[in-house]
Design a protein around this nucleic acid. Structure first.
Length: 498
RNA sequence: GGCGCAUUGGUGUAGUCGGCUAACACGCUGCCCUCUCAAGGCAGAGACCACGGGUUCGAGUCCCGUAUGCGCUACCA
């Protein structure tokens, strides 16, 4: 039987990186096994679900390069099927109507509520199975329902026995039925609940392997009970360790802000392949230790068995702007930027430069060679695509800012420098041809004549030409900026009047 | 409260059937290179493998217990 997996997010906000990682693992497994990767939007919570969120999920997957097969499924379209399944179980006596009035519950105190109820139940000697309606005769149940009395539908969990399954990641799992309550399938307003919906939809979609977050590990037993009640084959399960915040708590938008949202990485200049690569390494390790892997290599090496069981911490420091996200993610991105084929980098650069009005169409044809050379020169020290339009601005435009610290360090320190740099400009004006070698020779010669260290002129030039104190080899910069612009910039009065 | 899962340097992980002087990557420190910053090269710091006990000639690896963290326990998803 061929593998069918799915990614089933609920569209209640941005795509969380944890969810993105689940999607990745599902996708990898499908591609590895030649199976299908399906996408289902779990939009049954109408209040919280938005179209915008659905769009961002689809865009996010696309950005990561995770293409899905077959048609997109909206869970909300399957409401009737969910209800029909619940009613069938009711007919077959595998579920029952619970006429207990619905309890109002405050969302914030659920956790305490649960504990309190559990303690109270224990004190009264009740167990999960103590529901007065569990064994209500069918006729009476039918009569009360017909009379219009509201009811929820609950699964009749067997008193004795246990469910067991072999999780591909976590190994054999066993849970006694006595630990499982009679879960609600249908609310009293007829709305199907999560556990029912997933199971029905997974059956309908022919899912063979359920790969999802570890937060569903214990609930899996309930779902297995449903598969069995429904007479459907139980899929294989593989639960993934969770991704936690540095304090080992939940990674949430409210607490941690934009770091958890996938779109942030797109917007802040990540190369999709780099982020995908980083994500794959959270909870999984390639068998041979090589960590920088192409999409194809990820598919080749991936296996569910290789997934780690302990939760991973997403390591970032909110207080430090340089560590706004995980160090390794940033490193991975830089690694991709400086080593990936230019052909693949160009489209991303085009988008980035265009957004900042730094793109010129000639970069695609006449100036292609110059553009390649320039990008190659500067990409080595950049971490994100954004750096090309910020730190790299001076390479693509004459209109750039001077970094004040750089001006202080490289220009103001030496009073004669303004005059010297003007002299250098005069000298460079007559260098023929103008390139890295000749500009170097000219600069060194000029330094000798003036009796100053070459470094003084080099560093000064760097700041005059790029506005910064750091950057590539100065002579390469002269070459790339060109004679005309170099000379003009050397003579500029701007930094001197700052 | 109950149940489940996890626990290897700051972080991500590797450690097959028990032999480890505990490996790799990121980060960190220093040196080299050098016109700066990176990259690269080299060197290094950092883990009594959560703790306690047991089995064994020998335990990160097996068993039991404890602690801590996380998850689930909803007419949320």
């Amino acid at each position: 039987m061929s593998v069918r997996v799915r990614f089933a997010p609920s569209p209640t906000g941005y795509l969380h990186i944890g969810a993105a990682r689940s999607a990745l693992f599902n996708w990898l497994y499908a591609r590895k096994t030649g199976g299908k990767f399906l996408l289902r939007i779990e939009d049954t919570d109408l209040q919280r679900s938005t179209d915008e969120s659905t769009r961002s999920i689809i865009e996010g997957l696309e950005w990561l390069g995770l293409d899905y097969d077959e048609d997109l499924v909206f869970q909300s379209d399957n409401g009737p099927a969910h209800r029909a399944a619940a009613n069938r179980l009711l007919e077959e006596g595998k579920a029952y109507r619970d006429f207990t009035p619905k309890e109002q519950r405050e969302d914030k105190s659920v956790k305490e509520d649960i504990s309190e109820r559990a303690r109270a139940q224990e004190a009264e000697g009740k167990d999960q199975r103590s529901n007065p309606f569990r064994d209500l005769p069918k006729e009476e149940s039918d009569r009360r329902a017909a009379a219009g009395e509201p009811f929820a539908v609950r699964l009749k969990v067997p008193n004795k026995g246990q469910t067991r399954f072999d999780d591909i990641v976590y190994g054999p799992q066993e849970r006694s039925h006595s630990e499982i309550e009679d879960l609600v399938l249908l609310r009293s307003d007829g709305h199907p609940l999560y556990n029912l919906s997933v199971v029905i939809d997974d059956i309908a979609m022919g899912i063979t392997h359920v790969i999802r977050g570890q937060d569903h590990l214990t609930n899996t037993h309930k779902q297995i009970l449903l598969y069995e009640a429904l007479g459907a084959p139980v899929p294989q399960f593989a639960h993934l360790p969770l991704i936690l915040a540095p304090n080992k708590g939940k990674l949430s938008k409210r607490k941690h802000g934009e770091v958890v949202s996938l779109t942030t990485y797109r917007d802040r200049g990540f190369v999709p392949a780099a982020f995908r690569n980083f994500l794959a390494l959270l909870g999984w390790a390639p068998p041979e230790g090589k960590e920088v892997l192409t999409k194809e290599e990820l598919v080749e090496y991936f296996s569910l068995e290789g997934i780690n069981r302990a939760n991973a911490i997403f390591n970032f420091q909110e207080s430090d702007p340089r560590r706004w996200t995980d160090d390794k993610a940033l490193w991975m991105n830089a690694e991709y930027i400086r080593t990936m084929p230019l052909d693949e980098l160009f489209p991303m650069l085009k988008t980035e430069l265009r957004a900042n009005k730094l793109w010129r169409e000639e970069y695609d044809d006449d100036d292609r060679e110059w553009f390649s050379k320039t990008v190659n020169l500067i990409r080595e020290r950049y971490f994100t695509l954004k750096d090309f339009s910020s730190q790299g601005r001076a390479y693509f435009s004459d209109d750039f800012d001077f970094d004040e610290a750089a001006v202080n360090k490289n220009l103001r320190k030496e009073p004669r420098l303004r005059e010297l740099l003007n002299g250098l400009a005069d000298k460079l004006e007559n260098v023929e041809p103008f390139n890295a070698e000749t500009s170097e020779a000219a600069l060194r010669e000029f330094a000798d004549e003036a009796g100053v260290k070459a470094g003084l002129l080099i560093n000064g030039s760097r700041t005059m030409l790029t506005g910064q104190a750091v950057g590539p080899s100065m002579f390469e910069v002269f070459d790339v900026i060109g004679r005309e612009a170099s000379v003009t910039r050397l003579r500029s009065g701007i930094p001197w009047s700052m």
